[in-house]
Structures are given as C-alpha cells and as structure tokens.
Design a protein around this nucleic acid. Structure first.
Lengths: 190, 190
DNA sequence: GTCTATAGCCCGATAGAC
DNA sequence: GTCTATCGGGCTATAGAC
C-alpha cells in the first residue's frame, strides 16, 4: 500500500530530524556530519540528502529558538516576564534552541538566529523602560539570560547544571529588577 | 649574520602568532586553517607547521584566559572584585581570551579552558559566601560575567557592544551584590 | 523509493627540493 | 632555514544501480 510507504517515509524523516537535533546540539554545525546523522537515525547519507537537500537546510529545520510572548507592562512586570521566560527554558532541556546556541559563535546562520532573537526581545523590553539607557539595560537583561542558559546547558557550570529553575529564578530576580530600573536594590546598595 | 637570521625568525613567528590570534578569535578553531594563518602572516603553511608542530599546538599558544587576582573579603567586596575583573575585560578587546571564548562551545580544548577558568573563580567566590547555595550563587555570578563578555564581543548586542565599561559596571553592580548575598536589593524587592 | 559508489574539494601533515 | 609539492583522509553532494 502507498500509505504504508508514506508512513515509512514519515517515520524515517522523523528519526533523521531527531538525530540531527541531538547531534547538532551536542557537537555543533561543523562537527556534525551527514554521515553521523544517518548512522544515528539508522539510515544512509543519501537518504538524508534526498529528504533535506543540504546540510544547511537540515540545520535550519532543527535549530530554532521559539519567540517568547510579547513583553509589556511596568519595569517590574517586565523583569518578571523575562524571569518567567528564563525559568521556562530551564524547565526541560530545549534541544532545538541548544542546536542553535551551540553553533552561535562559529556558524553564521546560527549567529544570525541568536542575534535576531535577542534583538527582538531586547527592543520589546527597551520600549517599556522609560530610561535613556533602555537599550543597554535591555541588552544586559538578554545577556544575563543568555549567560545563564549557556552556563547551565553548554558549559555545565557546577551547581547551575542541576539546580531547580525556581531557585535560579529567585536568585536572578533582583538582577532583572535592577536592570529593569524599578529601583529595587540600587537604592539599598548605597 | 646568524643574529640576523634569528631576528628574522622571531619576527615571522610573531606575525604568525598575531595572525592566528586574529583568525581564531574571529572564526573559531574549525574554520581557521593553517593555510589562512600563513597567508595572513605572509608566509607559507609549511613554516607554520614547522614552528608550531600542529594546529592544536598553535591554538593553545594563542588562546588563553589570564587568571584574575585571588578573590576574598565580605560578600559586597567579592561582588565588587568580580565587577572590577569584568570592567577590566571590557576595557579593551581581550583578543587572546576571545580566541578561547569563540570556540568554547565547539572545540573540546577551548571548552575545557573556559570551564577551568570559570570553575576556579567560582570556587574562590563560593568559599567566601556563607550560604548553603554558595556554589550556585558563585556560578551565576560567573555566568553573568560570561554572558556580558559574549554579548559585547561575540554576539555584539546592540548598545552593549559600544557602551563604556563604567556604565555597564554600574548597571550590573546590583546583580553581583544580590548574587553575593549582601542583601542589597533582595530585601527591597519584596 | 532506497541505498551504494564516487566525484570533487579542502584539510592537516609530511617529505624533500632549494 | 625556507618553501613547494604531495599524501592520505574526511567531507558534502551527486549519479546511477537496484
């Protein structure tokens, strides 16, 4: 039956995508080979090429950072919203995002992907902060978020790699509050 | 004269090291070729190999993160010390460190180098913080530091890439204070 | 439709000419 | 000592056998 065939193909495609996500996120773009993906997916390189056309295309299919929900409100609300999006990402390993993040420093496409994501969030945040240095503040908020995710999943910083998201969120709340400029912390620090 | 020869060699070696630092920090380990380094240094690949033995060895010669000074004191003092080491790094482009950082997600040696540096600092910091979650707090401090440097030099986050170090330091002070647990900010945030 | 064989390229490293 | 030619190997991508 043709449906049998189609079903078979769908399954193989799925195995290839899963394998690609896993290997790209573990080893990065350059060190992941079509051959290794095929082996991991229990097929052959020719089929991978036939289904996805090129290595670049396969990468773009599995590496993505989903946009967060629109951010708005008072500075403190914005800080909390960023904190929520962070703890979300810390909840369970975001493999598709890690595939992008792993290569962000060495692969142009991944670099663009991360930059675009960060800039978009940053501009939304900056628009809500009534400060002349709003762009810098928002950029630092995104940098802290990036550092935390990279530290946990890619560098595997001791204590951060196995901490529960809530604890990390509680510790970082004053950071985001201060950067958002709700004046929590900066006054007390004097 | 032999001294002429030796001088010539010294100069060529220096040109190779400078070229390697530049290309490794710009393109990462995998995408930097011995051939490109030779061209940039205005020599040939054979000489690069002869002088440095292997690509790995050349990389290890130019990619380094200098250890910061020992950290100790009260939590607030520790926070300020980390802040100083950050603003130092933001002062002028730390090319040798960037050569390491650029490849930290995709090259095992660079990954180890960054991990070792971060862990060392983290342990020093954690030892000064009288908290049960000292390791996590210190790890987050290092992650914020990492995110800031990566955001500025490698991702080139808008507003962060050209901000003056003092402004960045002022905005991040409450973060490090709060993470150090000197209770600046966390109390006021409630 | 699925898989094998190989073309074509670039790499790190080496051998040997000058 | 300096440079050139080349080896051996891995890769993506393609062509064609089944």
């Amino acid at each position: 039956m043709t449906t049998q065939r189609a079903e078979q193909r769908r399954l193989t495609e799925h195995r290839i995508l899963t394998a690609a996500r896993k290997l790209f996120s573990a080893n990065g773009y350059d060190r992941t080979t079509i051959r290794a993906v095929a082996t991991e997916a229990e097929t052959d390189p020719g089929l991978v090429m036939r289904y996805f056309g090129s290595k670049e295309n396969l990468f773009s299919r599995v590496a993505r950072i989903d946009a967060d929900e629109p951010i708005a409100g008072t500075p403190d609300e914005v800080a909390d919203a960023v904190l929520v999006s962070l703890t979300d990402k810390l909840g369970d390993e975001p493999v598709a995002a890690l595939a992008m993040l792993r290569s962000m420093l060495t692969h142009p496409d991944a670099s663009r992907g991360v930059h675009n994501f960060m800039t978009e969030q940053q501009q939304q945040i900056a628009a809500t902060l009534p400060r002349p240095d709003a762009t810098l503040r928002a950029g630092l908020m995104m940098s802290v978020l990036l550092g935390t995710v990279v530290g946990r999943y890619l560098i595997k910083v001791d204590g951060l790699d196995d901490a529960i998201p809530e604890e990390i969120g509680d510790l970082l709340r004053p950071c985001f509050r201060a950067l958002a400029g709700g004046d929590a912390g900066s006054a007390a620090a004097e």
